[in-house]
Computed example of a mutant assay.
Amino acid sequence: MGTTTPRVAVIYATAQGSTREIADFIGAYLTARGAAVEVADVEHAPELTPFDAIVLGSAVHDLALLPEMAEFVRSHRHELQTHSLWLFSVGLGPALVGPAGRRIGHVVPRKIAALRDSITPRDFHAFAGHYERAGVSLPARALYRLLGGARYGDLRDWSDITIWTDTIAQALHLQQAQATPTHP
């Protein structure tokens, strides 16, 4: 990286906004550390060539990244492999605290693992997102509770997100932030 300002693209796919808020926070944090950051949803992703590093993030539905992120990864696989790359997902698994849920929640679903392995990011991290009770069937709510779902609502762990983003900043040799951006 030298003395030039590292350019970072943070590209995300969101279903209900939770992943966008995490991507915005990551972008703000890396900006506060001195990077030139562009945050964009996957449908408006910038040309990747000018960037030194790329952070990809997607919500998880049906044990897979959202289709638009999966398609982006497949169609840009070779280009992504030439950049410093990080990948995160946002889903329910990391929020499960029961004995069975902890085991299940730490397993990377097969479709996500295959996509991750096709681009070999420096790191992959799964974060919890939002899980609202409204509109969820009784059997699904029962399963959630059985697996150790302790509560509904915003399940994101912002300190975990900050720590992970800090590892990206360190890998890019960014300066210390004067202030840490706030999260939603």
Rank of each mutant, 00 (worst) to 15 (best):
T4L: 14
T5C: 09
P6H: 12
V8L: 08
A9G: 04
I11M: 05
A13C: 07
T14M: 02
T14E: 01
A15R: 03
S18I: 07
E21N: 04
I22T: 00
I26K: 00
A28V: 09
Y29K: 00
L30Q: 01
T31K: 15
A32K: 13
R33L: 02
V37T: 04
H44F: 12
P46E: 11
P46Y: 11
E47I: 13
L48W: 04
P50Y: 15
F51D: 05
D52W: 15
D52V: 07
A53R: 08
I54P: 02
V55W: 02
S58A: 04
V60D: 00
L65S: 10
A70Y: 02
E71C: 14
F72H: 03
H78I: 13
L80G: 02
L80Y: 06
T82Q: 11
H83W: 07
H83A: 07
S84T: 11
G91M: 03
G91D: 07
L92C: 01
L92R: 10
G93A: 05
V97S: 13
V97M: 09
A100F: 13
A100L: 08
R103A: 10
V107M: 10
V107G: 01
K111R: 10
A113T: 12
A113Y: 10
D117L: 14
S118C: 06
P121K: 05
P121F: 09
R122G: 10
H125P: 05
A126S: 14
H130G: 05
R133H: 13
A134R: 13
V136K: 00
P139H: 04
A140V: 06
A140L: 11
R141W: 15
L143P: 01
Y144P: 03
Y152E: 09
G153I: 09
D154I: 03
D160F: 08
I163C: 10
I168S: 09
P181K: 13
P184M: 15
